[in-house]
């Protein structure tokens, strides 16, 4: 695999790191030939996934590790996000908010609506989330 077709981000669960991570992923999407709209959608999904790790897997801690890799896999971009938190996957991936004014859940809806594949794989010591979108 071409070294330029893979990026790796090792960061922490501090929300201050969200912007940097999504910008890097969006830049990578552009380099793979994705157009602006889909790049932005992938960036948003990475943001939401990492924010959920901060909130839920790590209970709001800001100093816990998050490792992200993004690569081209055939005709898609595949992103894997590993955390070492509580290992609990969401019970469902809702497609719509039944009540738009009810708080919570929008991040998962974004993953469900904007990506082609979302897989939570519980590990013995955390979670591996795989996201994919066609280029």
């Amino acid at each position: 695999m071409d070294a330029n077709e893979r990026i790796e981000i090792k960061t922490t669960s501090d929300p201050a790191n969200l912007a940097g991570a999504r910008h890097q992923v969006e830049t990578f999407c552009h380099e793979l030939g994705m157009s602006d709209g889909p790049c932005a959608e992938v960036g948003l999904c990475v943001n939401e996934a990492m924010a959920n790790i901060h909130r839920h897997a790590y209970g709001g801690a800001v100093d816990k590790p998050i490792h992200l890799t993004a690569r081209r896999v055939e005709g898609s971009i595949e992103i894997q996000i590993r955390d070492w938190g509580n290992g609990e996957a969401p019970t469902e991936l809702p497609e719509w908010k039944s009540d738009p004014l009810k708080p919570g859940g929008l991040g998962l809806i974004c993953l469900n609506q904007l990506l082609d594949r979302v897989e939570f794989a519980a590990q013995s010591d955390g979670m591996l989330l795989t996201l994919a979108k066609r280029i």
Binding site: L44, L101, P103, L106, G107
Partner: peptide, 16 residues
Amino acid sequence: PYMDSSAIAVLVEALQ
């Protein structure tokens, strides 16, 4: 140019 779901939640709170 960009908002995430946490910013939307702030707007919803203000709306309410």
